[in-house]
Design a protein around this nucleic acid. Structure first.
Lengths: 147, 147
DNA sequence: TCCTTTGTTGACTAATTTAATCAACAAAGT
DNA sequence: ACTTTGTTGATTAAATTAGTCAACAAAGGA
């Protein structure tokens, strides 16, 4: 039941981007530095996020990335799904055909409820929620969001 | 965010045992057959359940396994923890020291809430709940619990 | 006592997944 | 042209998963 580094890093990267967006595009290099993620690894996490319509990017000098939508419109569930695939704890939730006992299996039912519980948290949290939490958390301190 | 076969098979095996317990001990061989799990693999899943005080076993002829406690007293959270380890979706929930940013990291906070949500489902479900669900589900039919 | 049955344990292995890195490329600006 | 920045595919080392093999331990029965 572990989240891989893809989901962890990807979420951190998007929060970092949401916190640092301004007039100009944000450089992957800067996100990588602030979040202590290897740039080359981060580049590979970016691709599915662009394909999924969460990120926009521009190449070349003065290029960089930006959110394709408002942070209020980006849910954690979407980020995790794009980077990790389905969050169903077992295969047979998404594909009942993979197991012949699916129809009568009550353990399957429970794993389905588990998936709903997970979904509840991820669906109800947006990038904006994380931004606000972060600002509230660091508010009184003078700390910046990992400069 | 996947459950491994250890957690899946282990839960199925314990439910099977709860459904089939009677006067005599239940044979691992029978559980394995009914649940379509290799006996040799099942044997390895049994060990941590015995160590964890969920199962009791007797060797030799007329031997077998039985629940060490009433099914009402066995929670899914315990089964999963014994077979899969911590259900925390990221390391830093259990060990904040593994990441230097733990204190100020709001993504960590969210993964903590995710863990709580998962725990909520697993803590609130007992083996007896699964037994009742199974009986209710098969009740009107004449189907047996995977003979 | 010896044999059979049943659970226990440790060693090993093949396949898969994870977490990256290397390297060539594409596009945008100067 | 040249530099900067993102894009993509190939490759790899390490870890994890899902088992199997095989020797052993204990209980009961003949």
């Amino acid at each position: 039941m572990k989240l891989s580094t893809r989901g962890q890093y990807g979420t951190r990267a998007l929060l970092d981007l949401a916190l640092h967006r301004g007039q100009r595009l944000v450089l992957l290099r800067d996100i990588a530095r602030r979040q202590q993620i290897s740039l080359q690894y981060l580049e590979h996490l970016i691709a599915p996020l662009i394909a999924g319509g969460i990120l926009r990017s521009t190449r070349g000098a003065r290029g960089g990335v930006s959110l394709a939508r408002a942070p209020e419109e980006i849910r954690l569930s979407e980020i995790v799904r794009l980077l990790e695939g389905s969050i169903a704890p077992v295969e047979c939730i998404d594909n009942p055909g993979t197991c012949t006992r699916s129809e009568l299996c009550v353990t399957r039912d429970i794993w389905g409820e588990l998936k709903q519980a997970i979904d509840g948290v991820l669906e109800s949290t947006t990038l904006q929620d994380l931004v606000e939490r972060q600002k509230r958390k660091e508010g009184s301190n003078e700390v910046m969001y990992y400069i």
